[in-house]
Structures are given as C-alpha cells and as structure tokens.
Design a binder for these strands. Structure first.
Length: 541
DNA sequence: ACCTCAATAT
DNA sequence: AATATTGAGG
C-alpha cells in the first residue's frame, strides 16, 4: 500500500485533517495533553505509553498510522530505539527534553525524521504533516524509478556487454526515460491494494535504508531487492515474492495496450485508479538453459533469444502499420514499439520474416483475386497490385500500395481514422504462424496475421487521403476528399516536396514511391532546381 | 549508421 | 522445419 503524492494532493480531502498520529509517551499526562493539542489540529491521535503496545499497534493491520511522535527520555532509550528499528515503515518524529547528542544521533540513524526539543510549539506540531507529504512524494519518486528500472535490470545488464557493442537495450531505456513515456509496472504492487486513499499508512520507509534504497543499483544483488522494498511488514510479502519470481522467470509482457499515445494520455491524466496504469513493456528473454551463475553477470553473455510473443508481434504490426508497410524500417519500428531490451537487430530479423511471409502469402491471394496471368507476370518483387499512382513528388506517393484491388491510391483502410472494422469478408484468410499464438484475443484484428494486410477493406465511402500513416515524417498531409483523378494537378506545398525528396535522398534504402522508377539523383536535382528548389547534393547518393 | 538479404545456428 | 541471429554487402 503506497501513499502517493497524488493521494495526498487529490485523493485526500482536507489533507492533513485526519492524519493518524501515534503518540508514544512514557508520561501519560503529557501524552494526554499532546493528544488534545493534536486533535485540535484535526489530527487523529492514539496514545501509547509503552513501546511494546505501540509496536503491536503499528503492526496491527486494522489500525494504521501516518506518523508517530515519540518521546525519548534517559530511561527509555533502548525501548525507543527498538521502536524505531521495528517500525521502520512509520515516519517518526522524536521529541525530548534531554539534549543528548548521541541519543539524538542514534535516533536519526535509526530513521527518525527529526528530533524536536520540548516544549513543542503549536507550529511544529501542526507541521508534522509535511513529513508525511514529503515522504509520500519521495516514495512516489522511488517507486517510479524502481518500477521503471526493475524490469530492465536483467535485460539491460545482459545487453550491456553485448559483443557487437550495440547496446540497444540500454539506449532504448535511456531514451524512453528521457522522453515522454515513462512506463510503470504497478502490477508489482498488485496485492489487491485499492488505494484507500486517506488511510494509506504503512508508508514504506525506503529513505531509512540509505544504501539499499536505491533501486538504480544495477549490481545484481537479489538481497538488496529483498531489503529495498520489503521491510518486515507482512503486507510487502507479495510484492517481494512476485518480484523475485519475476526475476527468475523473466519479465513478462503485459497485455495492456501498447499504444504509446494511450500510455501518454493516461499518464498525463495522472491515473487515480492505479489499475489503469500501463505496465512496462519488456521482452521475455529466454535464457538459454544457463546455470544460474552466481558471480556477476559477466559470464551470462549467451545471446538472449527474443521470443516474439503475440503481444510483441502485435506491437510490431502496429508499428509497421503506423509507418506503412513499405516504410517500416527496423529503427523506426523499434522506436514505435517501445519495448525495452529489444534491439534493432531483433526487429530487423522479424521484419525480414514478416516480409518473406508477405511475399509468399500475398501472391497467392493476388492470384485468387486477379487470376489474370498478365498481372501475375507483371508482378514484381513486391506483390502489389499496382498501378502507377501518384505523380512524382506528390506527397501521397509514399503511400503504400493497397492490396484490396481498389485503386492504388486508396490508403490502407487500417489507417482509416474511424477505425472501421472489417465487415467485408474478402480479406485474406488469416495466415497464422506455426506456433499457436492466440490471435483470437484480438477479434476482428487482422493485423496480427503474418503478411496479411492489416486492414479492413477500403470503404466504399472513400476517404482516401486520410493518411495518418504518412505524417510520421512530417510531410504535409493533404486532406482531400475525392479520388485521385481530381488531384492529378494538385501541387503540394514546397516544404512537403522538400521533405519527401530529402528523405528519399538521404535514405536511399527506403522504397521509392510506388510506380516510380528510381530517377537519377542528378535528374531529380535538376528538375528541382528548375522549379527553384535547391538541395545539397551528396554525391554519395 | 543503417538497411536488406543470405548464411548460419538453434 | 521454422525461426532467430550473425554477417556480408550496399
């Protein structure tokens, strides 16, 4: 159970009213007086006169406290220290009329928040809530960092020293941390906690473990995992065990939507319901039956094999869709997929497979749809049904071909903004990978079928230029209703041309717009300069 | 630096 | 046999 900053700021009406304070005083009279004062400040106070009682109260599930105020005297030092040591979860303020540095120091060492000399002013008393808030923020930060880093830990470590030096795993991690998406893995806390907002007691006192509390500690010290987050409190047990379990098994892909935008959207609206927070995506790396090596992670260099789970594949397909089949290149796909630990190589490989499948599957389909032998003869490498489409440099010329038998300028319906679902039945029979992946879990979604068009058939209503797929490189989308014919003489804005051409020049490996023969760079530049567009000519391409 | 394809490994 | 990884070539 975590008392987050959000709980306090949003979920806790009238914070700090109702803050639950445990008072541990030897002198019951003093205690009563304190109780009174605190209650006048709208705190809820329970008094204990000996440390044992107080401790049992702390460990009692039914009653929870946000903060403790503990009186120290010369006589009760040991008991108080014991209290501090045991109730690590509970933020504790010490108070005393003695002024013994060593005692004070010991208390602080044991995690006390501060040491206040009596008499306590109202101000000081009133302000105790700040410790709770402070800790909440602190924990929140730690938790995020922890959640974020934890799943990567293993893969990152393994990839870190990958021989070819390509630490995509790391890069990726760092990158996404710096960028907008910081994913969380709240399922670690899935003990059924429902955020009983105000009564969020057992704040984990991570701060009290200066050396172990740092989740970023990448040294594989499973012991530290234990100590980090599991401090004696029983309710942490499930957290710890699940965590350890995950370490053994390897982090599993979560079935949450992998859609980046969704994650961003959700995050930006600071989820009140923790269950809606997306989980970290990381890949399930299969260790190749390696004995658990105790000493360091160095020898664990065996290449980790990426298992393309349905979820992973789905993300892959998503990415490919977004980019457009023809423009899906490993690096971009990798970016879009936002999967930690996955390397460009992995993606490239998968992409290769994917393309192979397409090539094998589609021609057959084409054959069925256009049994005209001439067509098949004309079909080239990519089994498109394709016809010359755009005039050169039309921004839409980067459209992927469609496979629907509709005019080639029709964008794949998958990029149809309305996300119209497939109803026609003439899409491709779902080719399925050999393994029994559970495609069924994405009903109506054919994106996951290998090499199959990922989209529903074009809509009769034709909204041809809604091409979200191609804005990815910032080309101006020209939203024009109606069919191509009306657009033949359409001249896109120059920047658009510029962008497309630049891209084409700088990324020779990207496929050319459909139907175009590769023009020589010279001729392109010539043509452009005739139109007053001047680009640097890089002779290499 | 990165893509693609083919060879190789599992 | 299928699929992931590695490597060569562009």
């Amino acid at each position: 159970m975590v008392c987050t900053a959000n709980d306090i700021l949003e979920g806790w009406k009238d914070f700090p009213k109702g803050l639950k304070v445990l008072l541990l005083y030897q002198d019951c009279n003093f205690a009563a007086e304190m109780k009174l004062r605190l209650e006048q400040m709208d705190y809820v106070v329970n008094v204990f006169c000996n440390e044992a009682e107080a401790l049992s109260a702390v460990s009692c599930k039914s009653q929870t406290y946000h903060i403790a105020i503990v009186e120290v005297s010369k006589s009760n030092n040991d008991a108080i220290f014991r209290f501090l040591e045991t109730a690590k979860e509970l933020p504790t303020i010490m108070t005393s009329n003695i002024n013994c540095l060593s005692t004070m120091m010991k208390c602080i060492e044991l995690g006390a928040l501060e040491f206040l000399q009596t008499p306590l002013s109202d101000d000081k008393l009133r302000n105790i809530w700040q410790h709770v808030a402070h800790k909440a923020f602190n924990d929140n930060r730690k938790k995020e960092a922890c959640d974020y880093l934890e799943p990567v830990k293993e893969s990152a470590c393994s990839l870190h020293q990958s021989p070819d030096g390509e630490a995509d795993g790391i890069n990726h991690t760092v990158k996404s941390e710096g960028s907008t998406v910081q994913q969380e893995n709240i399922n670690l806390y899935s003990g059924g906690d429902k955020y009983p907002a105000p009564s969020t007691p057992q704040l984990k006192q991570v701060a009290r473990l200066p050396d172990h509390g740092d989740c970023q500690d990448q040294t594989e010290d499973s012991k530290s995992v234990d100590t980090i987050c599991c401090n004696s409190a029983t309710e942490n047990a499930c957290y710890t065990s699940s965590k350890l379990q995950m370490e053994e098994v390897g982090v599993k892909e979560e079935h949450q939507s992998a859609d980046k935008s969704e994650i961003i959207a959700r995050r930006s609206s600071l989820p009140k319901d923790p269950s809606s927070v997306p989980c970290t995506s990381s890949i399930d790396l299969k260790k190749s039956s390696q004995p658990p090596n105790s000493s360091g992670s160095k020898s664990n260099r065996k290449k980790l094999k990426v298992e393309w789970t349905p979820e992973l594949h789905k993300k892959f397909i998503h990415a490919v869709e977004q980019l457009g089949v023809d423009h899906a290149i490993p690096s971009r796909i990798l970016e879009l997929m936002k999967v930690e630990g996955l390397t460009r190589h992995n993606v490239a490989s998968h992409l290769q497979k994917y393309r192979m499948q397409r090539r094998h599957i589609l021609p057959k389909e084409e054959e069925r749809r256009w049994p005209n032998p001439r067509d098949s003869a004309r079909r080239s490498y990519y089994p498109y049904k394709p016809i010359m489409t755009y005039p050169p440099y039309h921004p839409n010329s980067v459209m992927p071909p469609n496979h629907q038998g509709y005019p080639a300028w029709l964008p794949p319906a998958s990029s149809h903004p309305n996300g119209v679902t497939m109803q026609g039945s003439h899409y491709y029979p779902a080719w399925q990978p050999a393994e029994n992946w559970h495609w069924g879990s994405y009903p109506g979604m054919h994106a996951d079928a290998w090499g199959c068009p990922v989209m529903p058939p074009a809509q009769p209503s034709f909204t041809p230029y809604h091409q979200n797929a191609y804005d990815y490189r910032g080309s101006h989308a020209i939203h024009t209703r109606g069919s191509m014919v009306h657009n033949l003489d359409l001249h896109p804005p120059e920047e658009a041309i510029d962008k497309v051409v630049k891209e084409a020049i700088s990324k020779p490996y990207l496929p050319l717009p459909l139907g175009l023969k590769p023009p020589s760079t010279e001729s392109v530049l010539n043509e452009l300069s005739k139109q007053g567009i001047h680009l640097h000519h890089h002779p290499s391409y």
